[in-house]
């Protein structure tokens, strides 16, 4: 259960930020999750909701997941392409010297507190 560890890490960071800002309660956490970050949003939301019941500051806190599109950059022909259908090999020139530009993120974007 890979999402469980991720949910604990998000919860720890959110509680820290909320306490620093004198929050009584956290209502919503917005997350940016890359398309190829290996996180399944549905699973993450499930374990998040379970974990929120154990943390008073996060009781009933909604987790909103925004997907970030995965784009790969080709070092050989200097063009970019969509990662998901294509993978590691550049569709323009066939090179495998390609690097993921976006799509691997797991960021806390913002939190809504009271």
């Amino acid at each position: 259960m890979h999402e469980l560890g991720i949910a604990f890490h998000i919860a720890d960071s959110v509680v820290k930020i909320a306490e620093e800002n004198g929050a009584k309660k956290v209502h919503k956490v917005s997350l940016e999750v890359g398309e190829v970050s290996t996180i399944i949003p549905d699973y993450l939301i499930d374990v998040w909701n379970w974990n929120c019941k154990r943390v008073p500051l996060l009781n009933g806190c909604e987790l909103e997941v925004e997907t970030i599109h995965a784009i790969t950059f080709c070092d050989n022909c200097k063009q970019t392409y969509d990662t998901v259908p294509q993978g590691k090999i550049c569709p323009h020139c066939g090179s495998d010297r390609t690097w993921l530009q976006t799509g691997n993120e797991v960021n806390i974007k913002d939190i809504t507190i009271e």
Binding site: I10, S13, N21, N107, I108, I111, I113
Partner: peptide, 17 residues
């Protein structure tokens, strides 16, 4: 407004890193 939005923009792996 009792609700405030705090911009965080932080990777969840940052603390661990």
């Amino acid at each position: 407004d009792p609700y405030r939005v705090i911009e965080v923009k932080q990777s969840i792996f940052e603390d661990n890193n």
